[in-house]
Amino acid sequence: MSWFTKVKKPLEAIALRKRIPEGVWRKCESCKEIIYSIELERNFNVCSKCGHHHRISAESRIKLLIDENTFKEEDEGLVPVDPLKFRDSRKYKDRISDAQKKTGNKEAIIAGSGLIENRPVEIAAFNFDFMGGSMGSVVGEKVTRTFERALSNKRPAIVVSCSGGARMQEGLFSLMQMAKTAAAVGRLSKAGLPYISVLVDPVTGGVTASFAMLGDIIVAEPGALICFAGPRVIEQTIGKKLPEGFQRSEFLLQHGFVDIVVNRLELKSTIALLLDHMCGQIVCPLPEPEQDEEAEAGPEEQAL
Protein backbone atom coordinates (compact mmCIF):
# COMPACT_ATOMS: atom_id res chain seq x y z
CA MET A 1 0.00 0.00 0.00
CA SER A 2 1.39 3.40 -0.90
CA TRP A 3 1.60 6.23 1.61
CA PHE A 4 -0.95 8.26 -0.28
CA THR A 5 -3.82 5.82 -0.11
CA LYS A 6 -3.29 5.52 3.61
CA VAL A 7 -3.93 9.16 4.21
CA LYS A 8 -7.33 9.13 2.56
CA LYS A 9 -9.42 7.68 5.35
CA PRO A 10 -8.96 10.27 8.11
CA LEU A 11 -9.70 13.02 5.62
CA GLU A 12 -13.13 11.55 5.02
CA ALA A 13 -13.75 11.41 8.72
CA ILE A 14 -12.96 15.11 9.11
CA ALA A 15 -15.31 15.92 6.27
CA LEU A 16 -18.04 13.96 7.99
CA ARG A 17 -17.56 15.68 11.31
CA LYS A 18 -17.81 19.06 9.62
CA ARG A 19 -21.43 18.44 8.76
CA ILE A 20 -22.44 19.49 12.26
CA PRO A 21 -22.86 23.26 11.99
CA GLU A 22 -20.35 25.32 13.95
CA GLY A 23 -21.39 26.87 17.22
CA VAL A 24 -24.10 24.43 18.14
CA TRP A 25 -22.12 23.23 21.11
CA ARG A 26 -19.94 25.24 23.41
CA LYS A 27 -17.47 24.19 26.02
CA CYS A 28 -17.81 25.75 29.47
CA GLU A 29 -14.66 27.72 30.21
CA SER A 30 -14.65 26.52 33.77
CA CYS A 31 -15.90 22.92 33.99
CA LYS A 32 -15.19 22.12 30.31
CA GLU A 33 -18.61 20.54 30.02
CA ILE A 34 -20.06 20.58 26.50
CA ILE A 35 -23.26 22.61 26.52
CA TYR A 36 -25.88 23.18 23.85
CA SER A 37 -25.31 26.77 22.68
CA ILE A 38 -28.96 27.73 22.65
CA GLU A 39 -29.37 26.48 26.20
CA LEU A 40 -26.33 28.46 27.32
CA GLU A 41 -27.65 31.61 25.67
CA ARG A 42 -31.08 31.15 27.17
CA ASN A 43 -29.32 30.97 30.51
CA PHE A 44 -27.57 34.31 29.79
CA ASN A 45 -24.27 32.48 29.34
CA VAL A 46 -24.24 31.01 32.83
CA CYS A 47 -23.14 27.37 32.73
CA SER A 48 -26.02 25.21 33.92
CA LYS A 49 -23.60 22.57 35.15
CA CYS A 50 -21.13 24.57 37.27
CA GLY A 51 -22.64 28.08 37.39
CA HIS A 52 -19.67 29.72 35.70
CA HIS A 53 -20.56 33.19 34.40
CA HIS A 54 -19.28 33.60 30.85
CA ARG A 55 -18.77 37.10 29.54
CA ILE A 56 -21.72 38.67 27.70
CA SER A 57 -21.91 41.65 25.37
CA ALA A 58 -23.27 45.05 26.32
CA GLU A 59 -26.41 44.35 24.25
CA SER A 60 -27.08 41.08 26.09
CA ARG A 61 -26.51 42.88 29.38
CA ILE A 62 -29.14 45.48 28.49
CA LYS A 63 -31.47 42.69 27.41
CA LEU A 64 -30.86 40.94 30.72
CA LEU A 65 -31.59 43.97 32.88
CA ILE A 66 -33.96 46.24 30.99
CA ASP A 67 -37.64 45.49 30.33
CA GLU A 68 -38.33 44.51 26.76
CA ASN A 69 -38.72 47.38 24.27
CA THR A 70 -38.08 50.07 26.87
CA PHE A 71 -34.39 50.74 26.21
CA LYS A 72 -33.60 54.02 24.54
CA GLU A 73 -29.96 54.41 23.62
CA GLU A 74 -28.25 57.75 24.24
CA ASP A 75 -25.03 59.27 22.94
CA GLU A 76 -24.60 56.45 20.41
CA GLY A 77 -23.01 58.97 18.06
CA LEU A 78 -19.94 59.62 20.23
CA VAL A 79 -16.86 58.22 18.53
CA PRO A 80 -13.23 58.13 19.63
CA VAL A 81 -10.52 60.28 18.08
CA ASP A 82 -6.77 59.84 18.23
CA PRO A 83 -5.38 62.91 20.03
CA LEU A 84 -1.90 61.43 20.56
CA LYS A 85 -1.58 59.98 17.03
CA PHE A 86 -0.73 56.86 18.95
CA ARG A 87 1.02 54.02 17.23
CA ASP A 88 2.65 50.89 18.57
CA SER A 89 2.88 47.84 16.34
CA ARG A 90 -0.36 49.18 14.87
CA LYS A 91 -2.10 52.52 14.66
CA TYR A 92 -4.69 53.28 17.33
CA LYS A 93 -7.04 54.37 14.55
CA ASP A 94 -6.84 50.91 12.98
CA ARG A 95 -7.42 49.25 16.33
CA ILE A 96 -10.56 51.34 16.76
CA SER A 97 -11.99 50.50 13.36
CA ASP A 98 -11.20 46.81 13.88
CA ALA A 99 -12.99 46.82 17.20
CA GLN A 100 -15.94 48.63 15.64
CA LYS A 101 -16.18 46.03 12.90
CA LYS A 102 -15.80 43.16 15.33
CA THR A 103 -18.44 44.32 17.80
CA GLY A 104 -20.75 46.46 15.70
CA ASN A 105 -20.44 49.09 18.46
CA LYS A 106 -18.84 52.50 18.10
CA GLU A 107 -17.19 52.30 21.51
CA ALA A 108 -16.67 50.04 24.50
CA ILE A 109 -19.86 51.09 26.24
CA ILE A 110 -23.59 51.39 25.54
CA ALA A 111 -25.62 53.92 27.51
CA GLY A 112 -29.25 54.87 27.68
CA SER A 113 -32.44 54.83 29.66
CA GLY A 114 -35.01 52.13 30.26
CA LEU A 115 -37.18 50.36 32.79
CA ILE A 116 -36.14 47.75 35.31
CA GLU A 117 -39.35 45.98 36.32
CA ASN A 118 -41.15 49.22 35.52
CA ARG A 119 -38.73 51.47 37.40
CA PRO A 120 -37.10 54.09 35.17
CA VAL A 121 -33.29 54.09 35.32
CA GLU A 122 -30.28 55.45 33.47
CA ILE A 123 -27.93 52.64 32.59
CA ALA A 124 -24.54 52.08 30.97
CA ALA A 125 -22.96 48.72 30.19
CA PHE A 126 -19.42 47.94 29.05
CA ASN A 127 -18.52 45.75 26.12
CA PHE A 128 -15.30 43.90 26.91
CA ASP A 129 -14.86 42.76 23.31
CA PHE A 130 -14.22 46.36 22.29
CA MET A 131 -10.53 46.85 23.15
CA GLY A 132 -10.88 45.13 26.49
CA GLY A 133 -13.62 47.51 27.56
CA SER A 134 -10.92 50.12 28.09
CA MET A 135 -11.88 53.65 29.10
CA GLY A 136 -10.85 56.47 26.81
CA SER A 137 -12.49 59.86 26.42
CA VAL A 138 -15.71 58.51 24.90
CA VAL A 139 -16.28 55.90 27.59
CA GLY A 140 -15.54 58.45 30.32
CA GLU A 141 -17.90 60.93 28.70
CA LYS A 142 -20.73 58.42 28.30
CA VAL A 143 -20.41 57.28 31.91
CA THR A 144 -20.38 60.91 33.07
CA ARG A 145 -23.43 61.73 30.93
CA THR A 146 -25.22 58.70 32.35
CA PHE A 147 -24.77 60.13 35.84
CA GLU A 148 -25.79 63.58 34.62
CA ARG A 149 -28.95 62.27 32.96
CA ALA A 150 -29.79 60.46 36.17
CA LEU A 151 -29.30 63.75 37.98
CA SER A 152 -31.48 65.83 35.68
CA ASN A 153 -34.19 63.16 35.27
CA LYS A 154 -34.07 62.35 39.01
CA ARG A 155 -33.52 58.66 38.37
CA PRO A 156 -31.18 56.03 39.72
CA ALA A 157 -28.01 55.29 37.76
CA ILE A 158 -26.72 51.81 37.07
CA VAL A 159 -23.34 51.11 35.52
CA VAL A 160 -22.28 47.58 34.64
CA SER A 161 -18.49 47.70 34.58
CA CYS A 162 -16.39 45.20 32.69
CA SER A 163 -13.09 46.74 31.71
CA GLY A 164 -9.34 46.36 31.59
CA GLY A 165 -8.96 49.95 32.84
CA ALA A 166 -7.82 53.21 31.29
CA ARG A 167 -7.04 53.09 27.56
CA MET A 168 -3.30 53.57 27.07
CA GLN A 169 -3.66 54.81 23.50
CA GLU A 170 -5.33 58.01 24.67
CA GLY A 171 -2.63 58.69 27.24
CA LEU A 172 -3.40 61.17 29.98
CA PHE A 173 -6.78 61.97 28.42
CA SER A 174 -7.82 58.47 29.53
CA LEU A 175 -6.44 58.93 33.01
CA MET A 176 -8.43 62.13 33.44
CA GLN A 177 -11.65 60.20 32.78
CA MET A 178 -11.17 58.67 36.23
CA ALA A 179 -11.38 62.07 37.89
CA LYS A 180 -14.21 63.21 35.61
CA THR A 181 -16.41 60.19 36.33
CA ALA A 182 -15.59 60.14 40.06
CA ALA A 183 -16.60 63.79 40.34
CA ALA A 184 -19.86 63.04 38.50
CA VAL A 185 -20.68 60.28 41.02
CA GLY A 186 -20.13 62.84 43.76
CA ARG A 187 -22.67 65.24 42.23
CA LEU A 188 -25.27 62.48 41.86
CA SER A 189 -24.71 61.33 45.40
CA LYS A 190 -25.07 64.85 46.78
CA ALA A 191 -28.49 65.07 45.11
CA GLY A 192 -29.58 61.97 47.02
CA LEU A 193 -29.98 59.79 43.97
CA PRO A 194 -28.89 56.15 44.08
CA TYR A 195 -26.12 54.65 42.02
CA ILE A 196 -25.73 50.90 41.82
CA SER A 197 -22.39 49.72 40.53
CA VAL A 198 -22.47 46.24 39.02
CA LEU A 199 -19.09 44.55 38.65
CA VAL A 200 -18.68 41.71 36.18
CA ASP A 201 -15.58 39.79 35.16
CA PRO A 202 -13.16 41.55 34.85
CA VAL A 203 -12.93 45.05 36.31
CA THR A 204 -9.41 46.32 36.75
CA GLY A 205 -7.20 49.40 36.94
CA GLY A 206 -8.60 52.83 36.22
CA VAL A 207 -12.22 51.72 36.06
CA THR A 208 -12.13 49.94 39.42
CA ALA A 209 -10.22 52.89 40.84
CA SER A 210 -12.92 55.39 39.88
CA PHE A 211 -16.73 55.17 39.49
CA ALA A 212 -16.90 51.36 39.78
CA MET A 213 -15.87 51.44 43.45
CA LEU A 214 -18.05 54.43 44.29
CA GLY A 215 -21.52 52.91 44.09
CA ASP A 216 -23.96 53.45 46.94
CA ILE A 217 -24.31 49.73 46.54
CA ILE A 218 -21.76 47.54 44.82
CA VAL A 219 -23.05 44.30 43.36
CA ALA A 220 -20.72 41.72 41.85
CA GLU A 221 -21.32 38.63 39.79
CA PRO A 222 -19.80 35.44 41.23
CA GLY A 223 -16.15 34.76 40.52
CA ALA A 224 -15.44 38.08 38.80
CA LEU A 225 -11.89 39.42 38.89
CA ILE A 226 -12.10 42.83 40.55
CA CYS A 227 -8.85 44.59 41.26
CA PHE A 228 -6.64 47.63 40.97
CA ALA A 229 -3.47 45.84 39.87
CA GLY A 230 -3.91 42.62 37.94
CA PRO A 231 -2.70 39.32 39.41
CA ARG A 232 0.20 39.09 36.96
CA VAL A 233 1.54 42.50 37.94
CA ILE A 234 1.31 41.65 41.62
CA GLU A 235 3.02 38.30 41.13
CA GLN A 236 5.84 40.07 39.32
CA THR A 237 6.12 42.66 42.10
CA ILE A 238 6.13 40.31 45.06
CA GLY A 239 7.73 37.35 43.29
CA LYS A 240 5.18 34.90 44.65
CA LYS A 241 2.21 32.96 43.32
CA LEU A 242 -1.15 34.34 44.47
CA PRO A 243 -3.65 32.10 46.25
CA GLU A 244 -6.73 30.76 44.46
CA GLY A 245 -9.65 33.17 44.57
CA PHE A 246 -7.51 36.24 45.25
CA GLN A 247 -9.23 39.40 43.93
CA ARG A 248 -12.39 37.51 43.02
CA SER A 249 -15.86 38.81 43.99
CA GLU A 250 -16.06 36.59 47.06
CA PHE A 251 -12.65 37.83 48.23
CA LEU A 252 -13.81 41.44 47.95
CA LEU A 253 -17.01 40.58 49.78
CA GLN A 254 -14.94 39.09 52.57
CA HIS A 255 -12.76 42.18 52.77
CA GLY A 256 -15.66 44.58 52.79
CA PHE A 257 -15.45 46.11 49.33
CA VAL A 258 -18.53 44.57 47.74
CA ASP A 259 -22.06 44.62 49.19
CA ILE A 260 -23.46 41.49 47.60
CA VAL A 261 -22.48 38.78 45.18
CA VAL A 262 -25.45 37.97 42.97
CA ASN A 263 -26.00 35.30 40.35
CA ARG A 264 -26.62 36.76 36.89
CA LEU A 265 -30.09 35.23 36.71
CA GLU A 266 -31.13 37.05 39.88
CA LEU A 267 -29.38 40.29 39.03
CA LYS A 268 -32.41 42.10 37.63
CA SER A 269 -34.76 41.26 40.47
CA THR A 270 -32.08 42.12 43.04
CA ILE A 271 -31.49 45.53 41.48
CA ALA A 272 -35.24 46.16 41.32
CA LEU A 273 -35.59 45.31 45.00
CA LEU A 274 -32.64 47.51 45.96
CA LEU A 275 -34.10 50.41 43.99
CA ASP A 276 -37.34 49.97 45.87
CA HIS A 277 -35.51 50.08 49.18
CA MET A 278 -33.61 53.20 48.23
CA CYS A 279 -36.16 55.22 46.32
CA GLY A 280 -39.45 53.37 46.19
CA GLN A 281 -42.59 55.20 47.18
CA ILE A 282 -42.55 55.98 50.86
CA VAL A 283 -45.86 55.28 52.57
CA CYS A 284 -45.73 57.38 55.66
CA PRO A 285 -47.19 57.53 58.23
CA LEU A 286 -47.91 53.81 58.31
CA PRO A 287 -51.69 53.22 58.17
CA GLU A 288 -53.35 52.58 61.50
CA PRO A 289 -54.69 49.06 61.95
CA GLU A 290 -58.40 49.02 61.21
CA GLN A 291 -60.70 49.54 64.20
CA ASP A 292 -63.18 46.74 63.65
CA GLU A 293 -60.40 44.18 63.22
CA GLU A 294 -59.14 45.05 66.65
CA ALA A 295 -62.63 44.88 68.09
CA GLU A 296 -63.11 41.45 66.61
CA ALA A 297 -59.77 40.24 67.87
CA GLY A 298 -60.36 41.57 71.34
CA PRO A 299 -63.02 39.16 72.67
CA GLU A 300 -61.35 36.18 71.01
CA GLU A 301 -58.14 36.93 72.85
CA GLN A 302 -60.09 37.26 76.06
CA ALA A 303 -61.78 33.95 75.41
CA LEU A 304 -58.40 32.31 75.04
Binding site: M178, A179, G186, K190, A209, S210, C227, F228, A229, I238
Partner: peptide, 25 residues
Amino acid sequence: AYPGVGAEERGQSEAIARSMMEMAV
Protein backbone atom coordinates in the same frame (compact mmCIF):
# COMPACT_ATOMS: atom_id res chain seq x y z
CA ALA B 1 -0.01 53.10 43.67
CA TYR B 2 1.47 49.93 45.16
CA PRO B 3 0.43 46.70 43.44
CA GLY B 4 0.55 44.27 46.35
CA VAL B 5 -1.53 41.77 48.30
CA GLY B 6 -2.23 43.98 51.32
CA ALA B 7 -3.01 46.96 49.11
CA GLU B 8 -5.63 44.95 47.24
CA GLU B 9 -7.08 43.51 50.44
CA ARG B 10 -7.50 46.97 51.90
CA GLY B 11 -9.10 48.38 48.77
CA GLN B 12 -6.49 50.24 46.76
CA SER B 13 -9.02 51.08 44.05
CA GLU B 14 -11.62 52.28 46.52
CA ALA B 15 -9.06 54.51 48.26
CA ILE B 16 -7.99 56.11 44.97
CA ALA B 17 -11.54 56.52 43.70
CA ARG B 18 -12.74 58.11 46.92
CA SER B 19 -9.80 60.45 47.06
CA MET B 20 -10.63 61.80 43.59
CA MET B 21 -14.31 62.15 44.43
CA GLU B 22 -13.60 63.96 47.70
CA MET B 23 -10.99 66.23 46.15
CA ALA B 24 -13.43 67.32 43.47
CA VAL B 25 -15.66 69.02 46.06
